[in-house]
Simulated assay, not measured.
Amino acid sequence: MPPTNSPTLRQRRLGAELRKLREQAGLNTPRAAALLGVNQSRISMIETGRTPVSADKVRSMASAYECADEQLVDALTTLTGRRERGWWEAYREHVPVALNDLAELEHHSAALRVALIVHIPALLQTTDHARALFQQVAPPMRQYEVEHRLTHRIKRQGVLHRENPPPYTAIVHEAALRMGFGGPEATLGQLKHLTDMSELPHITVKVVPFGVPGFPTTGQSFDYIEGPVRQLDTVQLDTHYGACEFLDAETQLRKYRAVLDRMESCALGPTQSRDFIHRITQDI
């Protein structure tokens, strides 16, 4: 398979996980190359995600590295092959690369958990709400950029409407419900949409009211994207400059799982949350 100069996040993740297995086995690149019967540059290209690798090759590498975790190896084989031609490929020239990486991660996720302080979850936003957000970013985007971002976000939401969608849990702070992006009419439409979506069996929305003690957050929103095994989970952080930052070190994953668990313990239950959102609509 020919090399690529623009590997996807999934391809880079596969390479990084194979590098971890090699290092855990105590092998340097020359020794690994000798065991596998390939040159050193081939190992380097695989580990940076620049060369697509087959499922059989992944199994051969895992065997050479004496990895006994069959579930992990099986999960790694699902990351193999060429770049998938998902719907997001049509946006490769129109939105930041990280947004397409996020769309691909969501598409392949086993489950999704998100935590937001001042925004409604992207996968639960209405068109009017999302457009209002994009029109208020700094520096301002051109209108065609707003429309590209908007249609990309709406298409991302398809992951929640397909056959066998991933379980989706959103922990939303009361502040996000009261921000009022787009004005009263857009806000009412957004809150109604949020409660309607929360009625779907695979979607759980939990609200954290003002004044809850012990709320564990620094104010940063994040997504926790579960992979086929826990080692392949990913955290996506929103940044102040509008991009996505992805984390996958085990210590980081453990930290954000703990934060999500604590946030969820502070939140109202699903039914109470719907009632809470309904009461907010009466104030608009």
Rank of each mutant, 00 (worst) to 15 (best):
G86A: 11
P2H: 05
P167A: 01
R230N: 07
N28R: 11
P2Q: 11
G214V: 03
T239D: 10
T80Q: 08
R274N: 06
V53K: 03
H148L: 04
A33W: 13
G182P: 10
V208L: 01
P270Y: 13
R274H: 00
P184I: 02
E250K: 14
T218A: 08
L133W: 08
T218S: 14
H108E: 13
L18D: 05
Q135M: 04
D238Q: 13
T151C: 06
V207K: 01
R83K: 12
P96S: 04
G227W: 08
S6Y: 12
K192W: 11
V259C: 04
A258C: 11
L194I: 10
A175E: 08
L247T: 07
I171A: 00
G189N: 05
K20H: 11
S221G: 15
V58N: 05
A103I: 06
Y144I: 06
K206A: 09
Q11A: 08
H193I: 00
A138L: 10
R230G: 02
L35H: 11
G37R: 00
K192L: 13
A62G: 13
F210Y: 15
G219P: 10
S54I: 09
S6R: 14
R92V: 06
C266D: 10
L123G: 09
H152T: 03
T169R: 13
V95S: 08
M45Q: 15
R156L: 09
